[in-house]
Write a protein that binds this DNA or RNA. Structure first.
Length: 238
DNA sequence: TTCCAGCGCG
DNA sequence: CGCGCCGGAA
């Protein structure tokens, strides 16, 4: 079964920039960006990020404000600050044995770095991988990691699986089944999310007076350490 | 509306 | 373990 998957992957793999490197820092950047964010949206931002900060040391030397600006629009902005602190920790002390000691690095991202950058025999389990494992009832080795992700992202979709094009469909007990819909989310237009994003854009372009900015949005950003408030002004961290 | 290579907190 | 976190595009 795994060989069928790998044959399919040989023909259908996605050409993604972070698959062209084994630099642990580059893999770390890609994985943090990819946490709950679509591949197509990450690609250009990943390339720009690495061009600006090619190493942990370069990123560590940047200011939080620069980091937030470079991250702007990707969402989950605290990821950016965590990545920054991780780079500073690595620049100071090197890579820890337990990668989950790094801020913003959990079980999945740690396994991804160990597998994709360090070549260790571990299988990173994201939702796509878990879904394929669950549906097929099969066990796969770490060599199938990228293939499982691509299958889950392009064929074995949660809601509308494309079983007709799946290399594993013949022996898949879940062939044709669909997953339940996930949580619901309100409209973006006019939402608090939109106001918060606008507030961050405003502060990022230049420091503003508190009076010029939506107070609730500023409070939310401040709670996350994305802005500081002083002297009636909101601005990004020094 | 629903999707998205998770993490960290209670 | 459940939940909130982000933003936009399809």
């Amino acid at each position: 079964m795994e060989s069928l998957l790998l044959i399919w992957y040989g023909r259908s793999s996605r050409d993604l920039p972070w698959r062209r490197t084994k630099d642990p820092y580059a893999i770390l950047v890609s994985e943090v960006m990819l946490q709950q964010t679509q591949v197509d949206r990450v690609v250009p931002r990943y390339l720009a990020w690495l061009e600006r900060w090619p190493t942990c040391e370069a990123l560590a030397a940047a200011s939080p404000a620069e980091v937030i600006r470079e991250w702007q629009g990707l969402g989950y902005n605290r990821r950016a600050l965590a990545l920054h602190r991780a780079a500073q920790a690595i620049a100071a002390d090197g890579w820890p044995d337990d990668l989950t000691e790094l801020p913003g690095v959990g079980p999945y991202t740690a396994a991804a770095i160990r597998s994709f950058a360090l070549g260790e025999d571990v299988l990173p389990r994201d939702v796509n991988v878990e879904r394929v494992l669950r549906r097929t009832g099969h066990r796969f080795g770490s060599a199938a990691a990228q293939a499982l992700m691509d299958l889950g992202a392009t064929i074995c979709l949660a809601r509308v699986p494309r079983c007709a094009r799946c290399p594993l469909a013949d022996r898949c007990p879940s062939r044709g089944t669909r997953d339940e819909p996930a949580r619901k989310q309100g409209r973006f237009e006019g939402s608090f999310r939109q106001r918060r994003a606008a507030a961050l854009r405003a502060v990022a372009s230049a420091p503003r007076s508190l009076a010029d900015i939506d107070p609730e949005a500023v409070a939310a950003l401040a709670r996350d350490g994305l802005v500081v408030v002083d002297g009636g002004l909101v601005r990004l961290p020094a």
